[in-house]
Design a protein around this nucleic acid. Sequence first.
DNA 1: TCGATGGCCGACCGATCGTGCTATTGTGTG
DNA 2: CACACAATAGCACGATCGGTCGGCCATCGA
Lengths: 201, 201
Amino acid sequence: MGKGDDTRAAALSEATEIAARLGLAGLTIGDLATAAGMSKSGLYAHFRSKEALQLATLASARESFNDTVMRPALATPRGEQRVRALFERWITAARDDWPAGCLFVSAATEFDDRPGRVRDQLVRDHLDLLDAIAQVFRTGVSEGQFRSDADPMQFAQDLNGVMLGFLHAHRLLRDPDAQARARRAFALLLAGARNLESQAA
Amino acid sequence: MGKGDDTRAAALSEATEIAARLGLAGLTIGDLATAAGMSKSGLYAHFRSKEALQLATLASARESFNDTVMRPALATPRGEQRVRALFERWITAARDDWPAGCLFVSAATEFDDRPGRVRDQLVRDHLDLLDAIAQVFRTGVSEGQFRSDADPMQFAQDLNGVMLGFLHAHRLLRDPDAQARARRAFALLLAGARNLESQAA
DNA sequence: TCGATGGCCGACCGATCGTGCTATTGTGTG
DNA sequence: CACACAATAGCACGATCGGTCGGCCATCGA
């Protein structure tokens, strides 16, 4: 088991880029084979079904996300600093049209109404992501920087919303101010978690 | 011009639902014909290309959005009350798996990397939406309820992010708390716009 | 009553979809 | 060097894709 693994990894890298542009469903075996410089059947032998290819592509994107965003963030000091590092890594990668990030967003909207293994995996990945955000946020609570009655899962959904709003403004509208607005939104989020001012209905 | 228009409108209604589930690209002429109880060619005669069908479906969804959310909101008193009405109409419709709302979100992520008339139209619609939100927000500024130095476009992107975060949590994760969290996020947004506390880096 | 026209259908086109089966090539090991 | 086997290619399949065409009805104005 030597060369095959390299070929598979290279194909998955191509697959991530294609799927980021055309969606996981739009990722075609023929297109991927052409992009990887292989025959359709030669490539198909690595994944024995399209669903398996989609799951493998998703797994590849998940690793890219962990390597690029999650693990480096977890290496920084606990507390608000780590929350900031997480956001910073995330939005910087997303700004550069980072394929793995776009893939997760597009796949989530693509498969939210299509039951199956792909959707199940997406749900797991998304739950893991939100849990990780919440966990990072909790380090800020235990360090005393955030309010102890703040809801970590609330923060996770809010931060996810900030990133989604940014991605829409950045990738669809090509808005040059999108990143600055996302930073301000994130700052407002932090401010709301820090002291004890705002609790409207 | 009598019966044909009814058929077309009915087909577009079906098209919106299918596209909300499978995406604008996944909306197939054959599937739509079956759903509409027509032959493929009979239906196809109403739209002379798939791109035209996609644009017509988008236009139909846009009207649904304006009828369901925008116009009723604009009929309420100016200021914060109108902003609240906008949010309330929006999230209530989205909670019920309202097809038109899902369609715009999925289409936006689907076509953000596919140049063409569909993408162009999506950009126009999205800009119109953000402008409308900003305009509603401005009525709150001129009524003195929101800070005069608040950025309406910032509020628009933020509110859009709240809705996107909600849709992800609701439709992909089926999170029963998603709506409550979205309301709290919206409340935080309003609180940040009201007085002059938070302006962190 | 007759002809025109709008609305719809069945059959069909070439291309491409996902997916098998059968070679043939390449590569690491004894 | 030869053998075993992993890796890739060739080819074909049924289905479905977007799209075209000729023609059959129903309606309606003259």
